[in-house]
Nucleic acid binder design. Structure first.
Lengths: 225, 225
DNA sequence: ACAATGAGTGCGAACGTTCGTTCTCGCTAA
DNA sequence: TTAGCGAGAACGAACGTTCGCACTCATTGT
């Protein structure tokens, strides 16, 4: 009937190059711009997902937050699902890296304590707890998000597992239960602490650390030196 | 233009009275039938919400699961929101009752251990873990669900708080941290264990109980008798 | 040096679908 | 007789996504 272009058009191709911070921005290459726009979308989507949930946030909402039209956004991600996957994967990878780093501590008890405490602190500072909650819920019914979680976590799982086995063989600790149970429960404890975002509730973090250390110590049963 | 009823209609008013189990069902009063239908809807909705999430499940999906038309369903609940609230409230109330019962144990350490273990077992048996995950996520952005959670949990909170204070005053336990931190961390641990649905992962529950007891004991520091 | 090119990018109306909800009417039970 | 219940088509709104076109800019041929 009528052409899709019979209305006046705004002057197009507005630049969005980092006008948020005062950074002086030189010219951008194609690739740089593409990367920046992708990050812009992920940033906006994260905000929307935290605010409204994966299912509750609409593409229009994300577009508005990213100050971008749907047509533009779809140049970067083929679907809403793809954005969800990208965000879930980035979050899980960041978590995994964080845990791996903390667990590098040669003292296994301190490694686990630091992993939990650092994870908790970083999650709070970056406002990740709501996103983590959302990802957990989504993983229950979205196979690709589930796989992302299992994949990134299996590395950490494997890491802790070997560390514990080595410590047992070296006679440093003598847990009363199987390594499988030890890991399952300690991971559950860690996740519970992260999800509850204790720093946001004004809980004394030094005391939390004391409790975490007491729990880990009680379950790993380090032998007296 | 045309009347909404110019097509053939199925013979209406099918009875749904408990044809699922073999129970012989006598005549039902208006009130009984109303209650049964309400329960039928909540049951179906719960299944759908577990399967698809609060936002992902559609009213049509719930209607199909309940074998009921939208028109019929809306006689019992004014909106989808109302169904979500009803389910969240029932779930939280059941949890609160369960915890209160377990905490009645005069031995405070055993009371807390039993609260966690029983809660975990019941959640698994009734397939509540996914629903709990969903409710937690929904509470992040749905004020009425949030209020439901806080209301039902504040009773349990108060209960534990008083029990711990009394035990401290009686010299039975000597925790190293404040009661507030003690509760926040122990509740986090409990929730982490529930959410992870350890029984579904084949974890040895006796060992889990051993670990939970070790953690609680280590943090409450019961004085030697 | 510069016009021509064409892939890359943004816009935003519009698409078809599905959503939560309403409506009307026939049927049932009190 | 009548108030309540159930069916299911239909509603407007909102959804995720697509479309056609305008515009930009790195590359290319001259």
């Amino acid at each position: 009937m009528n052409s899709p272009l019979d209305t006046a058009r705004a002057s197009a191709y507005d630049e969005h190059r980092a006008d948020d911070d005062g950074e002086t921005t030189g010219p951008m290459t194609r690739a740089e711009r593409r990367e920046a726009q992708t990050a812009r979308i992920l940033d906006a989507a994260k905000k929307c997902f935290v605010r409204s949930g994966f299912q509750g946030a609409s593409m229009h909402e994300i577009c508005k937050e990213a100050e971008m039209s749907p047509g533009a956004l779809y140049r970067y991600f083929p679907s809403k699902e793809a954005i969800i996957e990208a965000i879930a994967e980035a979050d899980r990878r960041q978590d995994a890296d964080l845990l791996a780093e903390a667990l590098a501590n040669p003292d296994i008890v301190e490694g686990i304590v630091q992993a939990m405490m650092t994870h908790m602190r970083v999650s709070h500072e970056n406002n990740m707890a709501p996103l983590f909650t959302e990802i957990r819920a989504e993983a229950l019914r979205n196979p690709s998000v589930l796989e992302t979680c299992e994949c990134s976590m299996s590395q950490v799982h494997e890491l802790i597992f070997r560390r514990i086995r080595a410590a047992i063989d070296a006679g440093q600790i003598r847990p009363a239960v199987s390594v499988e149970t030890l890991m399952a429960v300690m991971i559950s404890i860690g996740e519970g602490i992260i999800l509850n975002d204790l720093p946001a509730k004004g809980v004394n973090l030094a005391e939390v650390e004391h409790m975490v250390r007491a729990s880990v110590t009680a379950n790993l049963c380090p032998v007296a030196n």
